[in-house]
Design a protein around this nucleic acid. Structure first.
Lengths: 217, 217
DNA sequence: AACATTATGTCAGCTACTGACATTCGACAA
DNA sequence: TTGTCGAATGTCAGTAGCTGACATAATGTT
């Protein structure tokens, strides 16, 4: 019965891995607190590190740079989106699949998994911090490349030849981003929920056709 | 006749302004040479400054950061695009106006004004340098906001209410960016000219409708 | 020629980030 | 338990981007 190493049934994580995950989470947490409180620029890496009682050098072993710790939770959500998209039924066309995946992700956020409630504040922080915005946009287009890859595979296309996947992924990303913006910009009136966000995205998608059409009058 | 200050007929620029412009141009030039030769990351600001025989501090009086000197010529092209767009006849619809403005800018580049031939190499440098790419994307969306403002004004719309200008500007920016990418990625075969670039953009725009349509098969 | 403005140089300092090496801590076996 | 190995961490020194403060030099103005 008694295996020498503690059994690996529920979580095959050793003590070591758990500890690493703990300090990583603690760093992200402390960083967010400090960023939201004092601002990104006025928070030094040393402060974040000493908050978790870790050396600065260790911080940079977990995160390549200061931006990464700020965008960490977003990176998680992006990864979740990719997994949802890959798991969408093959019968759906590209647009349906992406809408479905976005819905899934926001609903899981709504249930409090992962990022939690600070998502909105985080968006504002990013938008108002040039460095963060730049890094975030770079991540976004990387995400779009991956999304295009998935879409092309679903449809059996070669992404080097057919540019529709890349194009659709980019347009979709744009719609989501603008939705985020007008969501955050809107006075915190009604429907500040995930349903509100999804409705916004749908609405913007509906405006896409008219926007591309010739005249607007 | 003899005005004390030299007359301001052809160029109202004083000696001071000319000198400033000269050193600024020299800095951009030296920076580009060094970046393309040794890479962005391996070029220090001190090297750029001493190349022009200027102190590092002076460099930072001309450019807020190292990225800015790399993206300077692009910023010029973006400004030119805005001016062209503002000058388009009011009869054109938004899409026509933007296509026309893009055509004008590329044609002026073709005539050797401003950026010149190094445009392609610069794009590759930006795409392959994470920091530069991030900064460039940030500039791009700022540009899109301004474009949306112009479009809204042309059509007499309130950009806070109607999101079509913002949406169209973003989609247009995306199409142009992807066109640049596939232009640079293509083997330097035929039509590596401004006409080729414009044709690419047109082609991608034609694919936009199909890409947004339901199924691709 | 004298003065006001403005660009530049110098210096000191902060912060992000990295390489190298020593140390400590968790994993695993005897 | 003990000992050994590898991984995580700490410490230290150093580079580079960037800024404020002040002195100096160049330019424009009267």
């Amino acid at each position: 019965m008694a295996t020498p190493t503690t059994a690996a049934d529920p979580q095959p994580l050793g003590l070591r891995e758990r500890k690493k995950r703990r300090t990583r989470d603690a760093l992200v947490d402390a960083a967010h607190r400090l960023f939201l409180c004092h601002g990104y620029g006025r928070t030094t890496v040393d402060e974040i590190a000493s908050e978790v009682e870790v050396s600065q050098r260790t911080f940079f072993r977990y995160f390549a740079n200061k931006e990464e710790v700020a965008l960490a939770v977003l990176a998680g959500a992006e990864e979740a989106f990719l997994e949802c998209l890959r798991a969408r039924p093959a019968g759906e066309n590209p647009l349906e699949a992406m809408r479905g995946a976005v819905r899934e992700v926001w609903q899981s956020v709504d249930r409090g998994e992962g990022t939690g409630p600070a998502a909105l504040e985080l968006f504002e922080l990013i938008e108002s911090t040039p460095t963060l915005l730049a890094a975030h946009l770079r991540h976004t287009i990387q995400q779009e490349v991956e999304v295009a890859r998935i879409l092309a595979e679903r449809e059996g296309l070669d992404p080097a030849v057919d540019l529709r996947p890349r194009l659709l992924a980019a347009v979709f990303g744009t719609v989501v981003r603008i939705s985020h913006l007008s969501y955050a910009a809107a006075p915190a009136t009604d429907s500040h929920s995930m349903d509100g966000m999804l409705a916004l995205i749908e609405r913007h998608f509906d405006q896409l056709g008219p926007a591309l059409a010739g005249s607007w009058r």
